[in-house]
Design a protein around this nucleic acid. Structure first.
Lengths: 328, 328
DNA sequence: TTGAAAGCGCTAACAT
DNA sequence: ATGTTAGCGCTTTCAA
């Protein structure tokens, strides 16, 4: 590894001049700067990040904490985040918490030691703890809002409104909501949006709360069974991960989608369109959320909440309800 | 931030003693160690990683380079890798290359600056470049083998043998192989395994090379169309990502799976079982590959290649071929 | 415009 | 068993 000192020696100038030249400082003579840059390149000089961080205090990486990388939504957020970070010449560090809220702070503080800041996706940490962390570390939230902390979120209420409007237009009058984890901020927002939309489009008992489920196939089984027991004609799932599980269970139980049951997801993960039937779902710009979060982290503006638009993708997992589900 | 110096002052000992005590060195008196640890805890002392790295040379993180985090297989490798890394008290840094082989070295060298070592998954870099990198940085390969570099791979040949045996037993005599990227090491191994198995189970023209495709839905469309044009009764896909695209295209073209076409994938990503029909595929222990790679990286043994067993999961995307596919 | 010098927080010889 | 000391590679005052 070539060091600054070696470059300085080769160029016949001081270390300070090399440091300034390489940083592009204008106070160093243009000719000197050029020569130094060239020699540094020849020697294949790579600055030692640890040394730089030690003296500047500023790090070289940005962290991302997600509940589960295997959820395609978070994989997309990670991809978007990572592209932006790399474009800024920094590194991305990613940690997942295995859907365990308790591990969130642990992972974050571990990342924070080497990171300038971190993006926290779908945090389930309490407001108080979160505020405390945000006080110590530069943090941007994704899919969560907290006063004074910058955040990027999808328009949850509007997404639910679109989904309900679509189902109502098809003629559904009893819709089941398969909720996400109880501590999920997005789930709370989606429930609110759902309630508002339901008041507008449906009768009082138009929405049935199926309960709270862990995204994944286990949760999907429970959710689908509850939906069937409740006699709803459509299921609105908290996210695609859960909708996937629901679809699987319905297929196992011989329930035809969309003929006997309509299913709507949320997120529009890439596989959604490849399922049979292709899943009707609310498309959330996950890649953009990741990059926008990095922008917020890197910019020095006031903490702001960026709400990204979402859009229902109508595919083939939704249709008119069966006329007489009992007969025929 | 509390520093070592402050802890030393508070404890009334030298910095060196604190350093040793906190490192758990046995040469420091037990009582001293205890007192120092307690004071450090009271002061909420957190060692500065940059300073430590600067002096020891050893970093604090382990890197992972994958072609595409949105491919569920790599997301699983990342998860497995990450759990192991965190269990070792280190951080994981993940970078993806957007399936661009050229970016691989770039991402790796960026990660290498702050990492003790890196796991390189499905590298498509040339042997020469890879050997050069492995000389500079501690590297473990996943899904790639190179003399002198530790590696974790799935048993590609055996996987193909199982898949071919399954299809042959069902009565298929013309199988199309939808290959992966030309520079993919696993694709080459899978082709070899396929050829060997075909010699044993099928006639000379039993396997049709459909070509090389990029995993994803675009590649799947091309692959499915080629398969249909070639009159094969079964498609063996390089990986699930590609199989997903194939399934999607077949559905679009009204080809019933498995009645008119059988499809077999490779990897067994979590959604494979949730597709309609559930995908028959070769299960590869992705999580384990990730953690095994970290083990290899952290251990100081001789470079070894760990071959992990794979197992065909027969689901419902495969069946006997139609008797007379032309008629009826 | 350039250089000298003082650390950033920590570890590891070496000395006691 | 503990302390002293000399840096790790870099940035950044301060002085020239």
């Amino acid at each position: 590894m070539t060091t600054l000192r070696e470059v300085a020696a080769a160029a016949g100038v001081s270390m300070a001049t090399v440091s300034r030249a390489l940083a592009g400082s204008t106070i160093v003579a243009a000719r000197t700067r050029e020569r130094v840059s060239q020699i540094a390149a020849e020697l294949d000089y790579q600055p030692n990040r640890a040394a730089r961080q030690l003296v500047t205090g500023r790090g070289q990486a940005i962290g991302l904490v997600v509940p589960d990388l295997q959820n395609a939504f978070y994989a997309s957020v990670a991809t978007g985040m990572q592209r932006r970070v790399r474009a800024a010449g920094l590194n991305a560090m990613i940690g997942d918490t295995d859907e365990d809220p308790a591990r969130e702070l642990e992972v974050l503080s571990q990342l924070a030691m080497v990171c300038d800041g971190a993006v926290l996706a779908s945090s389930r940490t309490s407001d108080a703890d979160l505020a405390e962390v945000a006080g110590r570390t530069r943090v941007v939230l994704v899919n969560r809002v907290l006063e004074g902390v910058p955040a990027v979120v999808g328009d949850n209420a509007d997404g639910m409104a679109q989904a309900v409007a679509h189902l109502a237009a098809l003629g559904h009058t009893r819709i089941g909501y398969a909720g996400g984890p109880a501590t999920s901020w997005s789930d709370a927002r989606r429930r609110e949006g759902l309630a508002t939309a339901a008041r507008r489009e449906l009768t009082a008992d138009g929405v049935v709360d199926l309960g709270a489920f862990r995204p994944g196939s286990a949760g999907g089984i429970a959710a689908a069974d509850r939906a069937l027991a409740n006699g709803v004609t459509a299921i609105l799932a908290f996210n695609d991960q859960l909708a996937l599980g629901i679809l699987g269970r319905l297929a196992d139980r011989g329930v035809a989608v969309p003929q006997q049951m309509s299913v709507v997801g949320f997120d529009d993960v890439p596989v959604a369109r490849l399922l049979a039937p292709p899943l009707t779902t609310v498309s959330v710009p996950a890649l953009e959320m990741g990059s926008a979060a990095v922008d917020l982290l890197l910019s020095s503006e006031e903490p702001a909440t960026r709400v990204l638009p979402v859009e229902l993708q109508v595919r083939r997992s939704t249709a008119e309800p069966a006329r007489h589900s009992g007969r025929t």
